[in-house]
Nucleic acid binder design. Structure first.
Length: 336
DNA sequence: AAGGCGGGGGC
DNA sequence: GCCCCAGCCTT
């Protein structure tokens, strides 16, 4: 007969000790003000920590506090976010900053309800801020913690309420946020999706999946379908050292970023090699067309842009790739 | 409950 | 290639 796994509460000290020894160093783990934690946790949404580091450093130089962010033009905010993805997050940060300065005396919320009323802050981020910036005893449930919980409980898909009930006893009495962060760190570095390192895990004695030798069976894999392909053309209008760019609508894909106008039907002009770009829900096949035609409709969102201004403009990665292609073809009459 | 929303690291 | 990442929001 198999022995019972140890109760989770008995592993609290081990978890905290493991974290004290193995925690990675990140800039947002220093000087934990509400502003810094808010920015970091927003950047970390669906984004690997290592990717976030340089963006966080640049952001803090450019927008060191709430007032600086509130006063910044939105295009500067987007340009700083460029390449990080999910650009709605940048808009939400800016909108929240303007709101807090204008209507809230430049002070931050202190309650979960207050934080969650801000755009871009959901269940995870609110809990993370309460824990890391305010020291509250709360569990921040992200993808890491979900996976750790699924394995500890040998449950295919535990709900947040079940995770809270089961894992709250792991938080230490003093500075409970150490336990909250340790669970996230554990999922990111030990209890990983593909190659978990169970021998190094401080919770292994309490892990039901480990005891059943079925760690990889939890959590249950998500149903997934291959995203469809969209064929588009990127219109490349060149005029001396200027390029015609279009600003995308605020809402939707790459909202607020600039880029080459795209069409579904083949325009006249010279085709460059197509490039493939994978988004979450579709794969883009983009063929740049260098067209001699005069652009038909110049709208407010359309602008002839000097090549030397391209650096400071928020552009998506796919549009950067088109630019690289033009450069390789020698089509960017560089003034250098 | 499901799908839109980026980009990249790691296998 | 595929999976998933310190998720949020709308429908």
């Amino acid at each position: 007969m198999a022995s019972e796994p140890a109760p989770l509460a008995t592993r609290s000290r081990s978890l905290v000790a493991w974290f004290a020894r193995h925690a990675r160093t990140f800039p947002w783990r220093e000087n934990r003000t509400p502003y810094r934690v808010w920015i970091a946790e927003t950047m970390l949404q669906q984004t690997r920590a290592a990717t976030v580091v340089p963006y966080f450093e640049t952001w803090m130089t450019r927008f060191p506090d709430l007032e600086a962010l509130a006063q910044a033009p939105r295009s500067d905010v987007l340009a700083t976010w460029q390449g990080l993805g999910y650009y709605r997050r940048a808009r939400a940060l800016h909108e929240a900053a303007v709101h807090l300065v204008r209507d809230h005396g430049g002070t931050f919320p202190t309650t979960e309800t207050g934080w969650r009323a801000l755009p871009g802050i959901g269940s995870y981020t609110a809990a993370a801020i309460l824990a890391f910036a305010q020291g509250e005893r709360t569990l921040a449930i992200d993808g890491n913690v979900r996976r750790v919980a699924a394995r500890l409980l040998a449950h295919p898909a535990p709900k947040d309420a079940e995770i809270r009930e089961a894992l709250l006893p792991l938080l230490p009495r003093r500075q409970p946020e150490r336990g909250t962060e340790a669970l996230i760190e554990l999922g990111a570095t030990v209890c990983t999706p593909r190659q978990p390192r169970c021998p190094a895990c401080p919770l292994a004695p309490a892990c039901q999946a480990h005891q059943q030798d079925a760690v990889l069976a939890y959590p249950a894999p998500r149903a997934r379908r291959t995203p469809p392909t969209r064929n588009r053309y990127a219109l490349v209008h060149l005029r001396d050292d200027e390029i015609l760019l279009e600003r995308r609508p605020d809402e939707g894909l790459l909202g607020g970023l600039w880029g080459f106008p795209q069409t579904e039907t083949l325009p006249t002009g010279r085709a460059l090699p197509a490039l493939r770009h994978a988004y979450t829900h579709f794969t883009l096949h983009l063929t740049p067309i260098v067209t001699p035609e005069t652009p038909s409709a110049l709208t407010d969102a359309t602008r002839w842009t000097p090549v030397h201004q391209l650096e400071s403009l928020p552009l998506s990665n796919v549009d950067r790739r088109v630019l690289d292609l033009l450069d390789q073809e020698g089509l960017l009459a560089s003034t250098s």
